[in-house]
Design a protein around this nucleic acid. Structure first.
Lengths: 346, 346
DNA sequence: TTGAAAGCGCTAACAT
DNA sequence: ATGTTAGCGCTTTCAA
């Protein structure tokens, strides 16, 4: 069907050997300028493009990086992907995206599939369901470069890119406190995710600072990360039906924030009655009706940095042993404007 | 770095020839059950995985399909990508996604890059800016299977997947008319896009049916498809500042719908004063404050079907000459519930 | 300065 | 039932 032009074709047409053509095209120093000119002109004319597959086979490099996120249809991740692409593209890598849908099994299959597709490296944000990391550690031990972003794990030593989850959560919670609320609930994602624990800590720290007793009943987890809307609605319902019902909610993830608003709307609760502060990178937050005060993560930037780190790993001459965890700042928005900014980078 | 196990390794370890191993692994009929067992067990033990690059080089097939959309961070497209993935995945293809950001130049670079990466086929929704299609026709003439979805073009004969844009637009417009509006503006995307003209026709047809004179001043185009928010705001501003200002707006694309609401909010216009009906696949439409009556496209389904058609093309034994254009139904939602459904499939 | 030949991992036609 | 060999497109010694 598709009839690609090969180096051999050029060689034959020009009465040269394939190796000469190869060298001429790659500007080998041994080739005469004249020959180079001829070869290049001809290659140009017939629109020759080298076959990257053959190149990969030879060089054991595929110039592609694999990405595993829970879902593309999520503002945070699609923005991060934009960032990933912007760098990968410039550096000549293509990006293969796959979605875990927050399912452990899908994550395992995807990473295997990607590794098997000989990606040169992996960019991953853990699925909510995942608690066993052997699928990743085995790849990592085999030398596959991996960089984590957003939902990271401690068990694998490599570069990581996150935001200051603790202080972001702290500030968001404190915002609610400063507005006079004291029965602040916390709607959280799967309990073992890094973002969940860190944000939880920020939440409790804020309560502490303002001498508000921590009430475990005010904390609801969504083990599926909000993948199933029902779990969010149930969680919210529980918070509302407590004897001493919550009077504000801090939500610790993008999808949950939306789910929470949806549930509140369903229960006919006005934002005045039940203000919500949560993480969200939605591009329409300002237009949402139960309004949302929100923490915005620099998703694009996170993708960019993670990719730079990954490519650094891939192209490193010597094995890298010093890893860094980049911590970026978030921004806290209160209805329509920035109120305060997150904390420092480490 | 990465130490892949090869068929040769297995052959050597087992005292067999590479071809025997290869055949045993692929269940070749000529291999004795005993040998198969031995080979498979060993392969399993050392976690052997075939090198897809070598396979591709051999078979001239990469088992990957390229996707070009304007933007991943757009509900319609991210849902379509989910559909694409669901099929591709099952059939053993991986998906390489790239974004044109509605820019002609990016689209050209991306398609070249993908073709050059030897994808087996291309799934594309045209960029708003694109008016010259030679980058695609040349690939297509060279035998690269292409399937268009959503934003299609007439110039290339192949499978296409769209929705019934005409009747969807017709119904959305008629909805506004039935609610007593007669000065209905139309906020449209780039004028040469298929979706723009088809939806425009539906809009005018609805006006006609109800004997409302078509007023060209009520039509505003956004050549960048809303990529630049300013163009949307300007367009809306113009519509509002006409001597005989519009009293309702029909918006013909996802991003524009959001942009339009944003502009209206900025101008402090209530939905009662200026109702909007528009295409949108946002997953938070019901939560938007200037409310939106909306046409929802079966994005996931479109991705699914387009991918099935593409893989059909890729795996066709003989050149395909009969192409079909699948036309799917949309749904029209009025605040909180379906009101009417789009029209038939062709 | 150029060419010949080997090899990357795999498969398939052709032996045996 | 198993082995030998050639070749996919390219690069890279090694020879000339």
């Amino acid at each position: 069907m598709f009839k690609p032009v090969t180096i051999k074709d050029i060689a034959k047409a020009l009465g040269l050997s394939p190796s000469t053509v190869s060298r001429a095209l790659r500007d080998g120093y041994e080739i005469s300028p004249e020959t180079k000119r001829i070869v290049k002109e001809y290659a140009d004319k017939i629109d020759y493009r080298s076959n990257p597959i053959a190149l990969s086979l030879k060089g054991r490099r595929s110039y592609s990086i694999g990405v595993v996120v829970c879902e593309v249809a999520n503002s945070f991740f699609s923005q991060a992907i934009n960032g990933i692409e912007s760098i990968a593209y410039n550096k000549g890598y293509r990006v293969i995206i796959s979605q875990s849908h927050d399912l452990y099994e899908r994550e395992v299959i995807n990473t295997k599939h990607l590794a098997n597709s000989s990606v040169d490296g992996l960019l991953i944000s853990m699925a909510a369901e995942t608690t066993d990391f052997s699928h990743l550690s085995s790849l990592h031990e085999n030398g596959l470069p991996i960089v984590f972003f957003d939902r990271v794990i401690d068990q694998i030593q490599t570069h990581k890119v996150i935001v200051n989850n603790f202080s972001s959560a702290f500030e968001a919670t404190e915002l609610l406190i400063k507005r006079g609320h004291s029965r602040i609930a916390h709607l959280a994602s799967a309990p073992h995710l890094s973002i969940t624990t860190e944000r939880m800590d920020g939440y409790t720290a804020a309560l502490n600072k303002h001498s508000i007793a921590f009430n475990p009943e005010y904390v609801q987890y969504c083990p599926h990360g909000g993948r199933i809307y029902g779990e969010v609605e149930d969680a919210v319902k529980k918070l509302l039906s407590l004897p001493d019902s919550a009077d504000a909610i801090f939500v610790s993830s993008d999808r949950l924030s939306i789910g929470c608003l949806r549930a509140l709307k369903k229960f006919h609760l006005n934002p005045e009655d039940m203000p919500v502060a949560g993480f969200s990178n939605s591009d329409v937050v300002e237009l949402l009706k139960p309004t949302l005060s929100y923490v915005r993560q620099p998703a694009f930037e996170m993708g960019r940095i993670a990719t730079e780190l990954l490519i650094g790993l891939i192209e490193a001459k010597y094995p890298v042993t010093e890893f860094e965890t980049k911590v970026l700042d978030t921004e806290l928005f209160l209805n329509d404007g920035p109120l305060a900014t997150g904390s420092k980078s480490v």
